[in-house]
Simulated assay, not measured.
Amino acid sequence: MKVNYSKGLLLKGVPVIFNKKGANISIGENCTIKSSFLSNLVGLYSRTIIVARAPAAYIYIGKNVGISGATIYARKGIIIGDNTAIGGNVKILDNDFHPIEFEERNKLLNDKNGGNSDLVPAKEIKIGRNCFIGCNSIILKGTVLGEGCVVGAGAVVSGKFEDNSVIVGNPAKTIRKLK
């Protein structure tokens, strides 16, 4: 089980960081992870949770990234670019946690060996450099955010977005481009 972090990591509160055997979590230089209630006055619902849940899963967090009470959960992979700010209570989830079809869900529920992760739909997430993800947003599996994207508070994001997009809503869409 590998969790690598670089110099300058600042923890405000105690995050939950877990990875499965064979998974990889890497946190770049000068990152700040906020996990205590008063560390972000937007009001954090829980500690930051970073989980690589499958044997080949990975989470790569770039340099100078700020995270506040977010959940980052990978079964495939999540890449977060340098200088990105992840607001309070954000969820970044590269998987559905369970199959959509009830027959497959029942197979998973009845599996005595801990669940067949191949039944859980998952797709890599890529978040570019210099992005801002507003509080209470959800970034869903397969999402690609270009460089400099801004995600509005509470957005439910799925799909591919060009550099410098301002993304809002449920379902999220680009409302304008930044210069």
Rank of each mutant, 00 (worst) to 15 (best):
L119A: 02
P99Q: 02
I80C: 11
T71H: 11
K12Q: 15
K76C: 06
A74K: 00
I49W: 08
K112H: 00
N89Y: 01
K7C: 13
I59N: 02
I125A: 08
K21E: 15
N40S: 09
G62E: 01
N130K: 05
K123E: 07
S35P: 05
I125T: 05
L9H: 10
G8H: 09
I59E: 04
N24D: 12
E104Q: 08
F37I: 14
F97W: 04
A70T: 04
K76E: 11
A57N: 03
K76G: 07
K21G: 08
Y73N: 12
N89H: 14
I100D: 10
V14Y: 10
V16T: 15
G114R: 01
N24C: 14
R53P: 00
V90H: 06
I17F: 14
V42Q: 10
S6G: 11
I100M: 07
L41K: 11
K2N: 12
S6H: 15
G77D: 04
P15C: 13
G128V: 09
N130P: 08
N83K: 10
F102M: 08
I67H: 09
G77V: 09
S26F: 11
F18D: 13
G28W: 02
I50P: 00
I80W: 03
V51A: 08
G69D: 14
A52P: 06
I17T: 07
K123C: 08
L108C: 05
D82M: 12
F97E: 04
G81H: 03
A56S: 14
I67S: 07
C31S: 05
G22L: 09
G62Y: 04
G128D: 06
V14R: 12
K34A: 13
N89C: 06
K126L: 15
K123H: 11
S6A: 15
N83M: 09
S39R: 08
G13H: 05
I67E: 03
N4Y: 15
K107L: 14
I92K: 00
D82Q: 09
K126Q: 13
R53K: 09
F18S: 06
F37H: 10
D96Q: 04
V120T: 07
L44Q: 01
L44S: 04
N83E: 13
K76D: 08
D94N: 00
V65Q: 01
N40M: 06
N24F: 11
D94L: 01
T84H: 05
F102I: 14
Y45W: 14
E101N: 04
G8Y: 11
A56F: 10
N30M: 07
L9G: 10
N95P: 01
I78G: 02
G69L: 03
